[in-house]
Amino acid sequence: MNARRMGAAGAAVLIALGLAACGSSSDGSGDAAAEKATGKKIKIGTKFDQPGLGLKKGTEMSGFDIDVATYVAKELGSNAPDIEWVQAVSAQRETLLSSGQVDMIVATYSITDKRKEQVAFAGPYFIAGQDLLVRADEKDITGPESMVGKKLCSVKGSTPAQKVADKYPGVNLQEFATYSECVAGLVSKAVDAVTTDDTILAGFAAQDQFKGKLKVVGKTFSEENYGIGLKKGDTEMCQKVTDAINKMIKDGAWQKAVDKNFGPANYKPSTGNPPTPAACS
């Protein structure tokens, strides 16, 4: 009986500690917790599984895309508590927008002509480029040309994987469903490099468990313009979002978000950043 009571007390303490931990971590995300809901709800689609860009841990969202989305939402009149985050995996982004399940998508969404046929874009708010992630002690790999005969990993069907397969056919390419598996392969020395947008790679390199173990080569060989996806034809919304991005870059919040999310990886955004958002059409 006594042991059971002690167990119950222990469990209660653990739960209390857990709650306290949750509370303090949401306070840590800045003034977001202090803001009151305005009641103007907004649904934003983003990635839930990309460290440094859009990552969901428990109920807390973090990353560069999250910071940009939160800023833009605020300019549109919705504070942080009004935002409903919706997971937007790559294959569903167009459908989510056209069916109205989300109001905007901020999810490493590259602006391409093909996608412009289906959705509208505001931005770019960031210019990324395809790069290589290698182990920190790697010396041989300096760019895609030095990858011939080496083992490379990327995500099945992704643009970076296709580009490598087309341009550098001599590369031994392993494909997985997510980058986490590739990074696991890189750490265990089964592959020599992981390739995708430098932002995503920097996000992984900045994670606590990989700090100092991985590095981004820093020689981009493509240009990806990240835009905020909107429903096609909504020019008014597009204009507002573009204004918000401009303001974010001007008042320093953009740079702050870059430093906060990619700083630990010693990653510097490629030339051209911060970008100038294109006019809405």
Binding site: K156, G157, T159
Partner: peptide, 12 residues
Amino acid sequence: GILATITENEGG
């Protein structure tokens, strides 16, 4: 696999 590739390039 090819469906993933096509969706990436052409949109779902």
